[in-house]
């Protein structure tokens, strides 16, 4: 079984790891028809107000539904996404 791998370069996207805040972009979420990506608050960071988290990142979750269309790779302004097997 071929398994899709999607890698996000968190030094480019993810504001807890030196990248941009994905809430300001989210292009990958919008162009991906099967909705493979999830935008979520970062783990293990110190938030001033845990009810209003400020550190976010993107994780490709539903990998088995990715069709390798390449739209996310093209749309990402940070060139942070790689899709391979």
């Amino acid at each position: 079984m071929r398994k899709t791998k999607i890698i996000i370069d968190y030094s480019k996207c993810g504001n807890a790891t030196g990248g941009i805040d994905p809430r300001q972009c989210s292009k990958c979420l919008q162009v991906c028809d099967p909705a493979v990506f999830v935008r979520h608050m970062a783990f293990n960071v110190k938030e001033d107000n845990p009810y209003d988290p400020q550190f976010w990142q993107i994780t490709p979750v539903w990998l088995s539904l990715c069709t390798h269309c390449g739209k996310c790779v093209k749309a990402c302004p940070q060139k942070a996404i790689t899709v391979t097997f």
Binding site: V38, R39, H40, M41, F43, Y51, T59, V61
Partner: peptide, 8 residues
């Protein structure tokens, strides 16, 4: 509080 983390 952290619902968006549920799948990860």
């Amino acid at each position: 509080k952290n619902f968006e983390q549920v799948y990860i």
